[in-house]
Nucleic acid binder design. Structure first.
Lengths: 211, 211
DNA sequence: TCAGTAACGTATCGATCGGTACGTAACCAA
DNA sequence: TTGGTTACGTACCGATCGATACGTTACTGA
């Protein structure tokens, strides 16, 4: 019934990668259609025909970014001990946000500062998903006696996410890889060394509930 | 010789505070003139006559933001020990980025994601200045035998700045105050590295300064 | 009363934003 | 060749961006 029409004049994956890099470097709003189309090497209507509007393009770009540049998350979650999970997660992130030949920082964080509610919540959901997987992993570590029984798995996960968020901003700020790696190695001391579970007593005077 | 003309119809400080809040909530680029003028309660030409262009307004707003919402920095630097400096700095920041009645997060961080080079470098300079003062403080702590002689003062300062940067983003992300405070208390254990067990004993909840 | 001065705000500037209408070009099947 | 189909890109849309021109209003001192 319907034979193929005129063939595409560009490689969708190449164009998408260019979009990823543009969003990565400038965030969502600051990445204009003009810059996007120029980087992707296609015309504006071509972008809309293949990728939908700017928001949909960003969704697709974020998916690709995650699967191509956030592999360190899976890698870290597969580590045998909680401490190794944390170290792999932090160092993997430090390396990802300072990858040579790529924009410094993290697409998710660069694009987070936006008024577009759907883009923001998309990124928030992604971050929450990772934090949830880390939490689950640390809960398992508690069950396995790899972490103290009174340890707060959710708080540990939140600590890691918060630190990597900071890494992303600092990398965009020009901080070199070795500096972030040093911070990563330093931060894992928060994961109690075997035999010293007492840091929690000293560190937490009393739980506070104010907002 | 020159008599006064028509009197001003607005309070400059009130208008400036409104500008601070707008930049705080949306960052630099996303805070449009329409929103700024509406929040400030003045017309567009009035803004330009009194505050110069948008960049100059931002400079002034940043100055005011620093002097009104970053008092915790001075407070922290005045603490007697390195660990207390760190704890006061982190908790002070956690409280500042979750201050009730104010936008969550930090103006400096919200506005950091921008293409405007001069705004970016202005913020980077501010961050570097704080990091420098923390570094100096920790160097002094090393001289005073308050920190181990082989400690890296600059790295400690970088650790704190990176963490507070993360706090700012997470606060904007909706993280409640108590969660960030818990992270703050947890993070100061890096100041009780193995080998100096007595740093740990002295950990007490420090006096608090709300601004 | 009146000239001088300065802040007021409407109405508008050119540039750029995200998004499309539409005529054209390139493929396939008959 | 011809009709159907699909991608191509120029040229444009209304809205909004930051920034101003300019006529008006309110105050002061002579």
């Amino acid at each position: 019934m319907a034979p193929g029409g005129r063939p595409r004049a560009f490689e969708p994956e190449v164009a998408l990668d260019a979009a990823v890099e543009t969003f990565w470097r400038h965030g969502y709003e600051a990445a204009g259609l003009a810059e996007l189309t120029e980087a992707m090497g296609i015309s504006r209507p071509a972008l809309y025909r293949f990728f939908g509007d700017k928001t949909q393009l960003f969704r697709t770009a974020l998916e690709r970014y995650i699967e191509r540049n956030m592999g360190y998350v899976e890698n870290a979650l597969a580590m045998p001990t909680a401490r190794e999970v944390a170290e792999a997660f932090l160092t993997g992130n430090a390396e990802a946000v300072t990858a040579p030949g790529r924009p410094p920082g993290c697409l998710s964080v660069q694009a987070m500062v936006t008024d577009e509610a759907d883009v923001f919540s998309l990124l928030a959901e992604n971050r929450r998903a990772i934090q949830g997987r880390l939490t689950d992993r640390f809960r398992r570590a508690i069950d396995d006696r790899d972490l103290p029984p009174d340890e707060d798995a959710e708080e540990l996960a939140r600590f890691l996410i918060t630190l990597t968020t900071g890494f992303a901003i600092r990398a965009a700020d020009g901080e070199p890889r070795h500096a972030l790696l040093a911070l990563a190695h330093r931060a894992v001391v928060v994961f109690a060394q075997p035999g010293s579970a007492e840091h929690r007593k000293a560190a937490l005077p009393s739980p506070r509930r104010d907002s």
